[in-house]
C-alpha cells in the first residue's frame, strides 16, 4: 500500500520537505548539499589537474559526493523501473500548446522522447542542442560557484545574498532561453 502511495506523483509540498531533509541530512553528515561540485571532481579524477590548475586538488576528499551521485543514478533507475504511475504528467494545457507550436510534442513522460531517447540521438541537431545545453550548465554552474542545490537550496536556506543573486541569474538565463532563443533553436 505504501508502494502504491509512492508511485503516485508527489505533491509539491511533500517534495519540498524531502529536498530540505536531504540538505539537513548532509549537514548532519558534516557535508554541504551541492551537486555541481561533482563535475569538477570528475574532471580532476580524469587527470585535468595535470593541465589546468583549477582541477589540481585532491578529488578523494569529494568522494562522498560521487557516492551521492551514484545514489542519484540508482534512484532514477528505481523510479522508472518500480515507481512509475500510469497517469501521464499533469502538464499545464498552455505549456502543451506553446511547445507544440515549437514542434515539441507532449508525450506524457517526464522528458520529450524526441530529444532524450536513444533513437533521437541520430539527429545532429538534437545532439548539438544537448551538448550546447550541457556546456552552458557546466560552465555556468562553476562560474556561479554552484547550481540549484548549492545556491537555491543550501544558499538561500542559509540566507546568503550571493545565492539569491545567482538564483536571479538562473531565472534571467532561463527566461531568455525559453522566450527568446527557443523560437530560433527549435
Amino acid at each position: 500500500m505504501i508502494l502504491e502511495l509512492i508511485k503516485q506523483p508527489w505533491p509539491w509540498y511533500t517534495s519540498g520537505i524531502v529536498i530540505a531533509l536531504i540538505m539537513i541530512t548532509l549537514l548532519f553528515f558534516g557535508k554541504s548539499f551541492g551537486f555541481s561540485s561533482n563535475l569538477s571532481t570528475i574532471c580532476s579524477m580524469m587527470g585535468a589537474g595535470k593541465k589546468v590548475r583549477f582541477f589540481d586538488f585532491n578529488w578523494k576528499n569529494q568522494q562522498w559526493n560521487l557516492f551521492f551521485l551514484i545514489g542519484a543514478v540508482i534512484g532514477g533507475y528505481l523510479s522508472s523501473t518500480f515507481l512509475v504511475s500510469n497517469a501521464p504528467l499533469n502538464l499545464s494545457k498552455s505549456t502543451i500548446t506553446d511547445l507544440a507550436k515549437l514542434g515539441i510534442q507532449f508525450d506524457g513522460g517526464l522528458n520529450p522522447s524526441q530529444l532524450f531517447d536513444f533513437k533521437s540521438l541520430g539527429s545532429v541537431k538534437v545532439i548539438s542542442l544537448l551538448l550546447f545545453g550541457g556546456i552552458l550548465v557546466g560552465f555556468g554552474s562553476r562560474y556561479a560557484g554552484g547550481c540549484t542545490s548549492g545556491h537555491a537550496i543550501s544558499g538561500l536556506s542559509n540566507l546568503q545574498l550571493p545565492s539569491l543573486v545567482a538564483v536571479i541569474g538562473f531565472f534571467i538565463g532561463g527566461l531568455i532561453m525559453t522566450h527568446l532563443l527557443f523560437p530560433i533553436l527549435f
Partner: peptide
C-alpha cells in the same frame, strides 16, 4: 553570480535539467 547564473539558466532551460537531475535522468 549574475553572469555565471545567467549562463547556467540558459543551459537549465535548454536541457531541462540542472546537474543533479542530469544524472537522475541517466538512471
Amino acid at each position: 553570480y549574475i553572469i555565471g547564473g545567467t549562463i547556467f539558466g540558459l543551459g537549465w532551460a535548454l536541457t531541462g535539467a540542472c546537474p543533479g537531475p542530469i544524472f537522475v535522468g541517466i538512471g
